[in-house]
Nucleic acid binder design. Structure first.
Lengths: 138, 138
DNA sequence: TTGCGTGCAAAGGTTTTGCATGGCA
DNA sequence: TGCCATGCAAAACCTTTGCACGCAA
């Protein structure tokens, strides 16, 4: 039974504050590491990576792969309720994150669990593609 | 003026044959390296990476980053048009990447396009979760 | 013969792990 | 006090580069 306590440490708070201050912008782990290495109270690589993982697992952070960017990008999505029950669509062109609530997804989860014996984790899953605004631009 | 000659070497042919034999499935550079390291006539990392780059430039291969998969994925596209019909499931416990071919996915894509005006990119999308083997272990 | 192809070794960058120490509850 | 958090160092990974040798044209 893994039940991390999530102690309230200075580092944890500082990292979360920083990501929130970016106001939804994407940031790589490397950028965060660099940011905190120049601070009066520096924070180590390891700590940053571990907190990013934890914040992902609690749904506060979303993680993306971006073509041409070395390393993975993170984005703060906050405490919005319901992120456990819906999926996310990410436009690869404009970067827009769309929260998609739809019972089609419940059926998808059910189908994959029943027919493919696989339990989807909606918190970590992001569907990539192109939004309507960007497809119209073409 | 760089104008590579693209000599017909055994290695070049072997790599292309292998990727074609995957029939549109996605494969990482690491998987290809591993595949050829166990062959009677092994092929080195360097050669494989360089051929992948070349095949990309000639348009035979598509390269894309896949969320959560370590390393970049490649796919043979040749003259073909389709082959967008399968998704990937990645087990968060054992790391296994499962290729899932299922017409449920076609319906999902159609639904999201029609009702949510979003065109899914199946090449990049990975559904996270837990596979049956790992859920049984618990 | 010429110049690209090959592959070992080593470097570069990102992420993870081991382990001793520090700090919250 | 009991864990968890922290962070250094080192390892594990993926990918690229340098360089000497091999081989197709």
């Amino acid at each position: 039974m893994r039940r991390p306590a999530n102690y309230n440490t200075k580092q944890r708070e500082a990292i979360l504050d920083y990501i929130i201050s970016l106001d939804g912008a994407h940031v790589t782990a490397g950028q965060i590491v660099k940011h905190f290495s120049n601070m009066p109270i520096p924070i180590g690589r390891t700590t940053i990576y571990r907190h990013l993982d934890k914040l992902m697992e609690t749904g506060k952070l979303r993680r993306y792969t971006t073509d041409g960017v070395s390393g993975v990008c993170y984005q703060y999505i906050g405490d919005e309720v319901g992120c456990y029950t819906h999926f996310h669509l990410k436009c690869e062109d404009c970067g827009e994150l769309i929260h998609m609530e739809c019972n089609m997804l419940g059926r998808l989860e059910g189908h994959i669990l029943k027919e493919h014996s696989f339990q989807i984790n909606a918190l970590k899953t992001v569907l990539y593609g192109q939004c309507s605004a960007c497809s119209e631009k073409e």
